[in-house]
C-alpha cells in the first residue's frame, strides 16, 4: 500500500498566498495521488523566519512530508534559501510547483523548490537550478540556463542560450537578450531591454541613476559559468 504524504507550504508573500489560495489545484497538479494533505506554515516576515521554520518543521515527520518554501525575492533570495536549506538539512524532500497554465518543455530540467508561474513558457533545452522562482507569463527561450536561487519577475523574458548566475534578481517586464551572461548576484530592476552581459555584482535599480557594482580585492567583474540543476 502506498504511503500518503503531506505537502507543507512554508513562507510568506505573493507566491505563498497565490499557492495557498489555489492549493487544491496545485495538489492535483503534482501529477500523482501521493499527497493527501496540504499544510500551511505562514510566516509573519522573513526576520525570524528560520527560527519559526525550525520550530514548526521539528513537529513534522520528514519521511512522510515534503516541503515547498515560498518566499518572494528578499535579500537576493537568501531568505528563501535559508528556509529551503534548513528543510533539506532536517531531511525533508522538496517539491517544485508548476502552475497548471504554464507550458514546460518535456526536455527542460527544473530543479527542486522551484516555482513556475501562471502562463510561463519554458522552452526546450532550458535548465533551471534549485530554489529559483519564475514569475507569471515569463518566457525562457531555447537553451536558457538559470542558476539556483534566482527570481524572475512577472512578464520577463530571457533570450536563447543566455545564462543567469546564482542569486540573480530580474524584475518584472525585463527582457534579457540572447547568448549573453548575467553574472551571479546581479539585480536588474528597471524594465527594459538588456542586450549586454553583466559582470557579477551589478545592480541596476531605479534608486541609483548609475549602476552600482560590487568590487573585490581578487579581481573585478567575474562572469559566472557554472549552472547547477538539482535532481
Amino acid at each position: 500500500m502506498t504511503q500518503r504524504h503531506t505537502l507543507v507550504l512554508i513562507g510568506c508573500g505573493n507566491i505563498f498566498e497565490t499557492i495557498a489560495f489555489n492549493s487544491l489545484t496545485f495538489l492535483s497538479n503534482l501529477g500523482s495521488s501521493d499527497f493527501e494533505d496540504l499544510k500551511l506554515i505562514r510566516l509573519d516576515s522573513t526576520d525570524v523566519a528560520v527560527i519559526i521554520a525550525n520550530e514548526q518543521l521539528a513537529l513534522l515527520n520528514p519521511a512522510t512530508t515534503a516541503v515547498f518554501t515560498a518566499i518572494d525575492q528578499n535579500a537576493m533570495n537568501y531568505a528563501r534559501l535559508e528556509i529551503y536549506g534548513r528543510a533539506r538539512i532536517l531531511g525533508f524532500k522538496s517539491k517544485t510547483l508548476i502552475h497548471p497554465s504554464a507550458i514546460v518543455a518535456a526536455d527542460s530540467k527544473v530543479g527542486e523548490n522551484c516555482w513556475i508561474g501562471a502562463g510561463a513558457v519554458v522552452s526546450s533545452g532550458v535548465k533551471i537550478g534549485n530554489n529559483t522562482f519564475i514569475g507569471a507569463h515569463t518566457r525562457l527561450d531555447y537553451g536558457v540556463n538559470i542558476s539556483a536561487n534566482c527570481w524572475l519577475g512577472a512578464g520577463s523574458s530571457i533570450g536563447n542560450h543566455t545564462s543567469i548566475g546564482q542569486h540573480v534578481v530580474i524584475g518584472a517586464d525585463i527582457n534579457i537578450g540572447s547568448a549573453i551572461q548575467i553574472g551571479r548576484h546581479c539585480s536588474i530592476d528597471i524594465p527594459g531591454h538588456y542586450l549586454k552581459s553583466l559582470a557579477e555584482g551589478t545592480f541596476i535599480d531605479a534608486l541609483f541613476p548609475a549602476t552600482a557594482h560590487i568590487y573585490t580585492s581578487k579581481s573585478s567583474h567575474k562572469v559566472f559559468t557554472k549552472i547547477e540543476v538539482g535532481n
Binding site: 548609475a210 552600482a212 557594482h213 568590487y215 573585490t216
Partner: peptide, 9 residues
C-alpha cells in the same frame, strides 16, 4: 575585501 560602489549625481 568586498565593496559596493556607486556614483550619484
Amino acid at each position: 575585501d568586498q565593496m559596493i560602489h556607486s556614483d550619484i549625481s
